[in-house]
């Protein structure tokens, strides 16, 4: 168990290092770092000074070493817009993103689980048809458009909720619901098909032959097995939510990392873009690591292997 944990930790660190390297590759080789890292409108003297202070005049391998050392110190450079540490700029926006993503995840997982289970257990009924139709439609709906439609209906037309902003619960509802719909559709579809697969399993027949109550079969025999694909999906969705929130945050003016990234891109604030990508990737790696550990408890087959 400890060995497994250490091994996974090591792999996670390698992944983070890989992310850092890819970002380096993209910004220094794919793009022209001097134009990227120097604010627009700088004079030639300023360009020369900045090029030197960022070490952009050094050979590539030296730049890479400096870059990795800087990141180890949490130093992504100063934000051009805000004038202070890019990492700090990003970290200040982190709580808003986490609040939005976790609320959306909670709403989506709750509704998606119930809907998926109902659709599977009432197979062939009108409930299944309705739930699946909604899920298929929701899956095809772009989140940002759904957000705009929510604003159009609940804010502009009905005046029930604010169209954007941050701070109160009413500000949270629309963006969280928008992202939640996306979680709902993925989860409802996955859970329905996993439960239908599980119902075909021999051990469910055994459970029935034991005369167990349907609730016992559902809560123990089905649910315990269905938790495994759900966990995988939730981990995947969390990653998508962190990225997917970019558009939702933009639509609702939500002050999270996603909107910050867009602002940074529009202003060519590369230190901030780098820091945002790094934090997002690090979060994602962390989530995957926790999910791997969670599997240990969910699936005894993995436990004994690890």
């Amino acid at each position: 168990m400890v060995m497994f944990f250490l091994k996974r930790m090591g792999e996670a660190l390698v992944t983070v290092w890989g992310v850092v390297t890819i970002v380096f590759f993209i910004t220094r080789i794919l793009g022209d770092p001097i134009t990227l890292f120097v604010p627009i409108g700088a004079t030639n003297a300023q360009i020369a000074a900045l090029t030197h202070s960022y070490g952009l005049d050094l050979p590539l391998w030296k730049q890479y070493i400096h870059y990795v050392i800087d990141i180890l110190h949490g130093n992504f450079g100063k934000s051009f817009i805000f004038g202070y540490s890019a990492l700090q700029v990003v970290l200040q926006r982190l709580p808003a993103t986490i609040l939005l993503a976790s609320t959306a995840l909670f709403l989506g997982v709750l509704s998606g689980t119930i809907a998926g289970a109902v659709a599977a257990l009432k197979k062939g009924g009108i409930a299944e048809l309705t739930i699946m139709a909604v899920a298929v439609l929701a899956q095809a709906t772009p989140t940002f458009w759904l957000g705009i439609m929510f604003i159009l209906w609940f804010a502009v037309h009905l005046h029930w909720l604010p169209a954007g902003g941050y701070g109160t619960l009413s500000n949270l509802i629309l963006p969280a619901a928008t992202l939640g719909v996306f979680v709902f559709s993925s989860l409802a579809r996955l859970l329905r098909s996993s439960i239908l697969d599980i119902l075909q399993e021999d051990y469910i027949r055994t459970a029935r032959a034991k005369g167990l109550y349907p609730t016992t079969i559902l809560c123990w025999h089905i649910a315990r097995n269905a938790l495994i694909p759900i966990t995988t999906m939730v981990a995947l969705l969390t990653g998508e939510l962190l990225g997917g929130s970019v558009v939702t945050e933009t639509v609702f003016g939500w002050p999270g990392i996603g909107r910050l990234t867009i602002q940074a891109i529009q202003a060519s604030d590369f230190p901030v873009i780098q820091a945002a990508v790094f934090i997002d990737a690090a979060l994602f790696v962390l989530i995957n690591l926790s999910v791997d550990l969670l599997y240990q408890f969910l699936d005894p087959r993995i436990r004994s292997r690890g």
């Binding site: 021999d202 051990y203 055994t206 123990w220 699936d299 087959r301």
Partner: peptide
């Protein structure tokens, strides 16, 4: 009742 396939007839988790 005893079923055919003991591999799959017991719940793995």
């Amino acid at each position: 009742m005893i079923f055919q396939n003991p591999m799959s007839s017991l719940n793995p988790v």
